[in-house]
Amino acid sequence: MNRLARHGWCLATALVVPWLVLASPGPLKLAGVAPAWPVLWLLPWALVDGPLSGALAGAGLGLLLDGLHLGPITEIPALALLGWWWGRLGRQGPPIERSFNLGLLALLGTALLGASLILQGLLLGWSAAEAWLPAPALHTWLAQTLLTGLLAPLLCSLQLLLWRQQTSGGRG
């Protein structure tokens, strides 16, 4: 376990996520909504490095991103849960490599992340609770889920390839 996390530079690639969140590149937006960058980084990491590493990476990433955002809503629980789940999937059965599978996992993960944000907004009774009711929140949720699911086969395949080369190289 934690084979990938031993490579310092591999872990440092997580810093690209907050950078992308801040830069928020316009061409990669759908209806003004950016993809869930943490999901696109976490999915291949957890699939290769296991549930514990995935959960820790998700929690760390969540801490980093919460610092960049306003308000009390947090991404930590959803990302930690996703890291753990994807880590278990990576350890059970044949390795997940197909584009469709990666896209589907990213789609489900982003949907879960968005649902956790909506739920927190409703539970915490944020100053404008109606903001988290269907109209605007549903738009963001659907757009982000769809966009992340579409980008995942392209980006996660490359990362999976890179991480697997690292881990197999380390073993050899």
Binding site: L22, G32, V33, A34, H69
Partner: peptide, 14 residues
């Protein structure tokens, strides 16, 4: 303006 997140879950600028 060095970062713009006017869409999505948060509405903020840096």
């Amino acid at each position: 303006v060095i970062s713009r997140q006017a869409g999505g879950w948060w509405q903020q600028l840096v």
